[in-house]
């Protein structure tokens, strides 16, 4: 899990152009969206959906599901682990 979390941090920084942020700056449990976290928005969510499809072969059909899956890096990692095992 730890390894996956670090990998996800690096991937998110790359696809979302978070130039000034390093993986160490991101807390795996704090929210990715809205205030108090990374401050990502709905367009970032669509980018993350493609990231899951491209890098993890997991397809999310309903963008509404993104809200829970992309709550934090940790929730993303859990979702990936669960769906890749299945």
């Amino acid at each position: 899990m730890e390894e996956l979390i670090n990998k996800l941090k690096a991937e998110i920084i790359e696809v979302l152009n978070l130039e000034d942020i390093s993986p160490g700056d991101i807390d795996a449990e704090s929210p990715l969206f809205g205030e108090g976290g990374l401050g990502l928005d709905s367009i970032d969510a669509l980018e993350l959906i493609v990231l899951l499809e491209k890098n993890y072969e997991i397809k999310i059909e309903n963008p509404q599901d993104g809200k829970t899956i992309f709550f934090s890096i940790k929730s993303m990692a859990e979702y990936i682990t669960e769906h890749q095992a299945a």
Binding site: V15, I43, L46, E47, V50, E53, K54
Partner: peptide
Amino acid sequence: QYLTPTAFM
């Protein structure tokens, strides 16, 4: 495949 919205927008 694997297209993202930012550049399109």
